[in-house]
């Protein structure tokens, strides 16, 4: 066989091999990422979700039905911050006062979520 033909064949095989490998991995990676994003979007929309979060009571507005909490991360919703939340019923915040360390349940379809239970930690 002529050498340049052999070299051409080898190079072609290498290019196809490397290209196919790259495309395969690249495509797979891309597909996985897309699926992950879709799953996240599905999880975030239309479905009622619930979180158990810990925090501190910073203020209570009985007349507005709002309680302000410094809280830890709420996965998939918001990072740790100080934030006002609607309470599901006026009774809920009666058990706690400003400065209490609390564990609370946040429930609802984003972005309409409310505190449904709240209890003091010790």
């Amino acid at each position: 066989m002529r050498a340049w033909k052999a070299v051409l064949l080898i190079d072609l095989a290498l290019i196809i091999g490397v290209g196919w490998g790259y495309a395969f991995w690249g495509l797979r990676e891309g597909r996985l990422e897309r699926e992950l994003a879709e799953a996240r979007a599905a999880a975030a929309s239309g479905i009622e979700r619930q979180w158990r979060v810990e925090g501190v009571v910073r203020a209570i507005f009985p007349e507005l039905g709002v309680i302000v909490l410094t809280h830890g991360e709420i996965p998939g919703y918001m990072p740790a911050m100080t934030m006002g939340f609607r309470v599901a019923s006026p009774k809920i915040h009666e058990a706690v006062s400003v400065g209490d360390a609390v564990r609370f349940t946040l429930q609802g379809v984003l972005p309409n979520v409310a505190v449904t239970t709240i209890e003091k930690i010790k």
């Binding site: 925090g55 564990r103 930690i121």
Partner: peptide, 8 residues
Amino acid sequence: SVGPTPPH
């Protein structure tokens, strides 16, 4: 930390 929230 502020209360039981994770440390910053």
